[in-house]
Design a protein around this nucleic acid. Structure first.
Length: 808
RNA sequence: GGGCGGGUGGCGAAAUUGGCAGACGCAACGGCCUUAGAAGCCGUCAGGGGUAACCCUUUGAGAGUUCAAGUCUCUCCCCGCCCACCA
């Protein structure tokens, strides 16, 4: 098989001439299957092993489903906007457009070599104006529905990238991309109200078959808490302080309140008091990293104000502390130090009152720590609700608050609105115009796309504005409403924008009237199986589901299809040979091209699928490749040695073949590629060394077909010995059940659960319990084991085992 | 601290979902072939005992349920990933 390169070249050329092999048919009566793998960011270093692994996984499944007679949509495209290309462009003084073209060309070439059966007629590219025209259109719809708004807000600012970052792009207080410490800065930003869809995004998960892990991370990220909003009157003022709490039942234990430094009352009081001003300045200097690092030691300052606890009219002090976040809830809390660790720590530090309102079930010292096992115990020190369990008291208090109109049932979410502006060049321009008279006005549909103009320098400006702001011809425009002088928005969209809806575009990639035709979306949607990395289980998936649900509300997508992705599975991670994550700095990077040059594409693909379960983390082991290589060589030999033989296979061979069909079909269906390959190896071992039976051509072809999704090149070559058509268009083998029924079954005989002997019986007798038990009792070994003891119980699992329980 | 995974030979891993633990592969060892190497082929391969047929022990630790537990329940230990002052 040293000529694998010849075979690869030959068949790659053939497939190029026969694109129908991987084409998805739009007007088909066949059942559809939409298999989606996350499209890559085409970096300059080419396809890496992770791409190769996950795309192979998708490709095997797509090929398998096609052979089963389904109309498979297995597309590919490019998520090509982004900082690496922009940074490279700056460094090399070249156009990002050119660089992107080079990279996507390289990726495509590598993918073809690896035999990924994408339908290339549906290729999409997020940087193509004909594509991002619709990304811009979606933004305009968000704006029109009041879901996109401009807001001056403190954002995470990366001083090195000179860019604003979304919360999710900040890792440990550092910029996700460059690792610089992130600081805060006020910038006018476009913000998208994803929070409006929080409940829908939780509820919609019911419609999906995502693995539990993915559902959980989505739910956790949205972070819904149910509780109440409560208004506390501020003493000597007609103002109120509103808080959110999940425990209105502990209201009698609220002995003080805390507001965030960014809270308007804090800002107001700072004007009057130097100490407060000082504290606010201190916290402002802290980055998020520092603020969260100070886990133990609480800081704070008294605001000088008191609030009135509505349940008992007690005066309680209002403090200012940075452990309260302005971005969550109302930016203010009622503190119940007896039953909350943070409140307790704060109360201890500043000598505030601690009143228990839940009676602990076990001994508890309220001087030492908070009693946080709050679902247990009964309510105390709270006259109207004393003696109730917390859940009951919760409902009672909400009712009371609502009657008195000082509070109401409410939910709060961890999820925040989505900052949608990026002060960069290489992204989709936000299609908005700022008119001095009319305010923000969207670009009319017939002027879309707003194409990225060519600029001379791609660097962001020091004041944080996008490079586009320097292009007067771009910025200056007319207001579409009043016709007066106006200016264009110069920020661009975040990376997620283009990848939110790409799966819809594959369905109808050349449509210039709409995102995609409803009819086609109705046929192809939802994505049946979406393969991607864990790192996208939260953000990409959530944003994409949000945009889909928004489009659903607009009536743009099929009403029948509530969720964009039916099933999501995550692929595993391939570590370097040293068991560490592959990285250039560690020097442990495996380049797929090197491997395929050395062993061939089929070996690379099969090795990747054989390493372990598709969703697990596995270290690269060059030596193990030999096993797969040997298997393919033995398979080769086997086919060559049998191909002149035309006799019918023996029943024993047919049993092996049919068992294999069953096993491989089940394994491919459930992405258990490693065991599918093991079964093929086992079958080949049996056919060659153990039995050495002659195999009929019909059955040889079956073996080739079973292997075809995994090793597309070599199977195409083998199949061509017998047929003129492509194996990848062949029909998937069907099990002949006749051969799955074995004549003889082996039944294990155990005594007290330990296997002591075995029994071979004719399979027609396997359901005859008395017959089997009788034979079991007469077994020589068993007689010996039983000795003079009595059998107290006999259990028979049909066709499997007998267990005789004896009394010793 | 919270959530989700996971712990099985020297290694990567299987185990019909409660029914023969270790399939398949790697490595290792022994042999054949070869002038020699490479490749290939045949064999051994969880640990211990026995000349042997066989026996005992073994799925992170311990308990439990069961005729039967890698699989179910409880307690504990360790590892990985994600999130975290979320009121």
């Amino acid at each position: 098989m040293q000529d694998f390169k010849l075979i690869e070249n030959k068949w790659q050329k053939y497939w190029e001439e026969h694109p129908e092999i991987s084409r998805a048919e739009n007007n088909s009566k066949k059942e559809k299957k939409y298999v989606l793998v996350e499209f890559p960011y085409p970096s300059g270093s080419g396809l890496h092993i992770g791409h190769t692994f996950s795309f192979t996984g998708g490709d095997v499944y797509a090929r398998f489903k096609r052979m089963q007679g389904l109309n498979v949509l297995f597309p590919m495209g490019w998520d090509a906007f982004g900082l690496p290309t922009e940074n490279y462009a700056i460094k090399m003084k070249r156009k990002p457009q050119e660089i992107t073209k080079e990279n996507t060309d390289m990726f495509k070439k590598q993918m073809k070599k690896l035999a990924f059966s994408f339908d290339w007629s549906r290729e999409v590219n997020t940087t193509d104006p004909e594509y991002y025209k619709w990304t811009q259109w979606i933004f305009i719809q968000l704006f029109k529905k009041g879901l996109a708004y401009k807001k001056e807000m403190p954002i995470n600012w990366c001083p090195s990238c000179k860019i604003g970052l979304a919360n999710e792009e900040v890792v440990d207080g550092k910029c996700e991309r460059c690792g610089s410490e992130v600081s805060r800065r006020n910038i006018s930003q476009w913000v998208v109200k994803i929070t409006e869809y929080a409940d829908k995004l939780i509820d919609g998960l019911k419609e999906t078959d995502f693995i539990e892990k993915v559902k959980q991370s989505q739910i956790n990220w949205i972070g819904k808490s149910e509780g109440a909003k409560i208004k506390f009157k501020i003493k000597n003022s007609d103002k109120y302080l509103e808080v959110f709490t999940t425990r209105p039942d502990t209201l009698f234990g609220a002995t003080f309140m805390v507001i965030a430094p960014e809270h308007e009352i804090s800002l107001e009081m700072a004007e009057k008091n130097e100490e407060i001003k000082k504290y606010l300045n201190e916290t402002r200097k802290k980055s998020d990293l520092e603020r969260t690092e100070l886990k133990k030691e609480k800081t704070g300052v008294f605001s000088g104000l008191y609030a009135i606890n509505p349940v008992n009219n007690k005066e309680i002090p209002i403090w200012i502390s940075d452990f309260v976040l302005s971005s969550y809830g109302t930016g203010a809390i009622m503190s119940v130090p007896a039953h909350d660790e943070r409140d307790f720590a704060f109360a201890k530090k500043f000598g505030l009152k601690i009143i228990p309102v839940i009676k602990p079930k076990e001994d508890h010292n309220f001087e030492k720590e908070a009693y946080i096992n709050v679902d247990n115990g009964e309510i105390i020190n709270s006259p109207p609700i004393d003696g109730m369990v917390p859940a009951e008291a919760f409902e009672k208090m909400i009712k009371w608050l609502e009657e008195k109109k000082i509070g109401e049932r409410s939910s709060s979410y961890h999820l925040r609105d989505w900052i949608f502006s990026r002060q960069h060049y290489w992204g989709e321009p936000i299609p908005m115009i700022n008119c001095p008279k009319c305010g923000w006005v969207p670009v009319p549909d017939n002027q879309l796309p707003i194409a990225l103009p060519e600029v001379e320098a791609y660097e962001p400006t020091d004041d944080g504005k996008s490079p586009l702001s320097k292009i007067e011809s771009f910025v200056k425009t007319k207001c579409p409403v009043c016709g007066g002088e106006a200016e264009r928005e110069t920020d661009v969209m975040p990376n997620w924008a283009g990848s939110d809806w790409y799966f819809l575009r594959y369905i109808d990639p050349n449509n210039n009237k709409e995102i995609a035709s409803q009819e086609l979306m109705n046929y192809w949607g939802p994505v049946d199986i979406y393969i991607g990395g864990d790192e996208h289980n939260v953000l990409h998936l959530l944003y994409s589901r949000f945009i889909y649900k928004f489009l659903w509300d607009l009536g743009v997508v099929s009403k029948e299809i509530l969720e964009p992705y039916y099933k999501r599975i995550s692929h595993g991670v391939i570590l370097g040979p040293d068991g560490q994550r592959m990285s250039k700095s560690r020097g442990n990077v495996i380049v797929p091209e090197d491997v395929s040059e050395k062993y061939g594409v089929d070996v690379l693909r099969m090795y990747l699928m054989f390493m372990g379960p598709f969703d697990s983390t596995m270290a690269w082991n060059e030596k193990t490749i030999a096993g797969v290589k040997r298997f393919l060589e033995r398979f080769n030999k086997f086919v060559l040695s049998q191909k002149d033989n035309v006799i019918d296979s023996s029943d024993e061979v047919k049993v092996i073949i049919n068992k294999l069909i069953k096993g491989v079909t089940e394994d491919l269906e459930t992405f258990k590629y490693n065991t599918a390959i093991a079964k093929m190896m086992e079958a080949l071992n049996n056919l060659t060394s153990l039995l050495n039976y002659k195999v009929a051509i019909k059955d040889i072809k079956t073996l080739i077909k079973l292997l075809a999704p995994l090793a597309p090149y070599i199977t195409e070559e083998f199949y061509s010995f017998f047929e003129k058509t492509s194996v990848h268009m062949a029909e998937w083998p069907i099990v002949d059940k006749k051969y799955l029924i074995e004549d003889e079954v082996t039944i294990m005989i155990a005594i007290n659960g330990k296997v002591r002997s075995e029994l071979k019986i004719n399979s027609t007798k396997q359901n005859d319990k008395d017959y089997v038990l009788n034979l079991a009792r007469q077994d020589k070994n068993i007689i010996k084991w039983i000795g003079t003891n009595d059998i107290v119980k006999e259990i028979y699992i049909s066709g499997r085992m007998v267990n005789l329980v004896i009394k010793l």
